[in-house]
């Protein structure tokens, strides 16, 4: 068994038997593909752009739906672009929000340049310093399983750094139409289109 998590297997295990009321926002690039590969769901909102915005979409959603758990699943590059969002979330302390960063230490979509998480930034420590209720680093499938059990009641805001390998994964492409994804997501919550 590999010492480093394989991302697709990790996300599949994380989403296995997902809580019925869970809402998920996936950051652009491979985290969105990982979530889609684990099983499409009306309560998944996949980003194809808006880099740096995933955690803040999660905050707006978590404040709007305080009785539902909200998971933001994103990558290290996306999280780093919106690093200030950790301070904003820490100030609001939404208990129903969890941010899971799939951290391969690289900008994987653009040529595997090392990212800041390879160069000194420790995202769980940043989140803690910003006032998150908890943070953790996950390195193996046992850690993913423990995380899976927290999805229903995050007691957040929590931030998890899941250390994954940087090997390439096959593309698994969700719908790219934002209006479709948003309407589908809102319909899942019983909200009217528009």
């Amino acid at each position: 068994m590999s010492a480093i998590l394989e991302r697709r297997a990790a996300v599949r295990a994380l989403m296995a038997g997902r809580p019925a009321d869970l809402l998920v926002v996936a950051g652009l690039g491979t985290p969105a593909y990982d979530l889609y590969a684990a099983g499409d769901h009306d309560a998944n909102f996949y980003l194809w752009g808006a880099m740096g915005g995933a955690a803040m979409i999660g905050l707006g959603l978590a404040l709007a739906q305080p009785d539902r758990p909200v998971l933001v699943l994103t990558g290290d590059g996306e999280a780093l672009m919106g690093l200030g969002a950790l301070a904003t979330i820490g100030a609001q302390r939404p208990a129903n929000l969890m941010v899971v960063v799939l951290d391969n230490g690289h900008f994987g979509e653009t040529g595997m340049q090392p990212s800041h998480t390879s160069l000194g930034t420790d995202l769980p420590r940043v989140a803690e310093a910003c006032g998150f209720a908890w943070s953790a680093t996950v390195r193996d499938m046992a850690g993913i399983e423990a995380l899976r059990r927290r999805l229903a009641t995050p007691e957040g805001p929590g931030l998890v750094r899941a250390i994954i390998g940087a090997e390439p994964t096959p593309k698994a492409l969700p719908a790219r139409d934002g209006a479709y994804l948003a309407t589908r997501f809102r319909a899942h919550l019983g909200l009217a289109p528009g």
């Binding site: 915005g53 803040m56 979409i57 707006g60 404040l63 709007a64 200030g84 904003t88 919550l189 909200l191």
Partner: peptide, 21 residues
Amino acid sequence: VPLTTEEEGVAACVGAWLGGA
């Protein structure tokens, strides 16, 4: 919600709408 930069607010407004607020 005080923001550290304005684009956070654009994303948050869309998240709020996704959740019906």
